[in-house]
Design a protein around this nucleic acid. Structure first.
Lengths: 347, 347
DNA sequence: CTGAAAGCGCTTACAG
DNA sequence: CTGAAAGCGCTTACAG
């Protein structure tokens, strides 16, 4: 932000400001761990105040577009695809390059984060965007120590760690979906959620519970199953739900992919949708328009989420302080053809 | 290629080999002009012989996965999406990172290629993959001079320039599509092709012509319109074809996107497909299964094309000499529901 | 955990 | 045009 911009700051300048020696600054820059937390903090502050860039970074920057890393799980489904589209849209505007690494969220756990973060630093990468990934505090530390901004879109984490994240109003979305089903006359409504502890799924479920509670409809544990956002879980979850003595008349799926699985299994069991079973998805991806019947779903502004994530990374890289560690964009329930009054109430 | 690989060559090593001082090598590296042509040549030869890399380059390269640049036009349609999927598949196997630049094929013409190639060099990029782009000899030269391998998937070029390219058996595909329509009894068959001069589209058209000729069906100039592979052109092209006194009974579209446009315009004019108009697409992307009726199409192995392109770039970067400048993978006609006998012949 | 000292590799300023 | 000398900025090895 402030002041001291006379000349390009060099390592010695930073050392002077921080009141340490040049070797110590060098260690901080290279992410070595033989530096005390207090000293490291002072050096980081000095680096930030002076806006120090290493020769590598300066060179990488002066010689062309900046790079931002992206970890995204394939582009087989619409969810990551739309997020990627949003990111690339903004990348074109901001003139940055997006690096698709070969580390998928599944491999995130096992990857050597120290090495990876170091590589990012040395290649002059501006920051990192993770899409639906789980990040541990320790992993985050590798990037934090090197001043590499990280933003997660819909983290699969229990909400903590001080992760900077972008998502949508999951709670409100879950509530809207459930209220819609209640309005249609449903009372036996099930929720098929994502990975245990995933912030976004938990919020959706709480929105669902809030809607039930507001109408005085008791929630039932057997109607709430959470495991993953996959198609496959939609199939298995539905099989379990339909095997109950007191079958639900409506299913609220935590993702559109899961809803597709529900659709598949319901069809296999000879149930018509929406006549015999109402179904609401979550995400609002293009598939909702391609299924038969078209899928009622809570739309997330996925492209916008991608754009915002990249913008946030770039802001952090510029030393700006974000207003909030968490950005939530509005969801919107889009009613299509997969929901109707339950059989008993039909005209 | 040869010999002298004991240790990482440093600037002084190069100077020794060239019989000059370190400052002189530095000048050559930095493009300064106070070096005689003869000395410069000697230094350049030494640089090449030793495979000298600047610290920046060495660092970028040795510290992690290699990078390959990719220029692809959005991911809105299935074509680039599937190619990208194939590239990323192989990237994961080969352990390389894919850099999605902000240069889309449309901007390729205007971009400063010298600067871009220089940036690639300095960032340690291994090579460049272009998807359905047009490349001029002059542009290619910028990369060639820096020893940066370039591979184009389905180039939109007149076939020359010695471009290394990957594609599919377009001629055979065009022939197969047309033979299928002829077999059904069609004689008035139109072709809606891609950009004028695009190698792949021209080959498809020649396959079409070859099939007509083999059956003694005369070709008609008014039945052959080439402009682009877009949806929009499918609409406009169809409007023009259906305005002819002697309407075609079948349309062979140069891409699935174009076929979608044909479908849209035919529907708008109240024509049923395949009863009133038969339609064959090209690409065999997922959309062919999602339209109503499902689209008969010549499938290209798009993922495989992506994989092969990346593999070729990496081979070239390793100094391997490719067997052939052009790789063609097999196409396959997949018959679905958009083709039938012409109205006059129907049962 | 810290830094004085030595070192590395490249670049600059300047004398010839 | 060329290079000995000085310099720059960062890193390494090691003593405390």
């Amino acid at each position: 932000m402030a002041s001291t911009d006379r000349k390009k700051p060099v390592l010695a300048t930073v050392a002077a400001l921080a009141g340490v020696s040049a070797p110590t600054v060098s260690k901080v820059l290279n992410g070595r761990d033989d530096v005390s937390a207090a000293t490291r903090a002072r050096v980081q502050a000095a680096l930030e105040e002076l806006g120090y860039e290493s020769p590598v970074q300066r060179r990488a920057r002066s010689s062309g577009p900046a790079m931002v890393d992206l970890v995204i799980d394939g582009i087989k489904t619409y969810y990551p695809l739309e997020v990627l589209t949003g990111i690339l849209d903004y990348a074109a505007v901001a003139g940055v390059e997006i690096v698709l690494g070969n580390i998928t969220p599944g491999k995130m756990r096992s990857a050597n984060h120290e090495q990876w973060a170091q590589h990012m630093l040395e290649s002059g990468r501006k920051g990192l965007i993770l899409v639906t990934s789980e990040v541990t505090a320790k992993q985050l530390e590798s990037f934090h120590r090197r001043n590499i901004p990280v933003v997660v879109i819909d983290p699969l984490n229990p909400p903590n760690h001080g992760i900077v994240s972008v998502g949508s109003t999951n709670w409100a979305g879950g509530k809207a979906a459930t209220e819609h089903l209640l309005d249609l006359g449903h009372r036996r409504i099930a929720y098929l959620g994502g990975p245990a502890g995933a912030e976004c799924s938990v919020a959706r479920q709480h929105g669902y519970l809030a809607a039930l509670m507001a109408r005085g409809v008791p929630s039932r544990p057997e109607y709430m199953v959470s495991e993953s956002f996959s198609h496959d879980f939609g199939v298995r979850g539905t099989r379990a739900l339909l095997a109950l003595a007191d079958r639900p008349t409506a299913i609220f799926a935590g993702s559109d992919s899961t809803a597709l699985g529900v659709l598949e299994e319901a069809r296999r069991q000879g149930l018509r949708i929406p006549e015999d079973l109402s179904l609401v998805g979550f995400d609002g991806t293009n598939v909702t328009e391609q299924t038969l019947p078209r899928l009622t779903s809570v739309a997330q502004p996925l492209k916008e989420m991608g754009r915002v994530a990249l913008r946030s990374v770039l802001r952090m890289a510029d030393g700006e302080v974000l207003d909030s560690r968490r950005v939530e964009l509005a969801t919107e329930l889009v009613i299509r053809d997969s929901t109707a009054a339950p059989a008993g109430l039909a005209a």
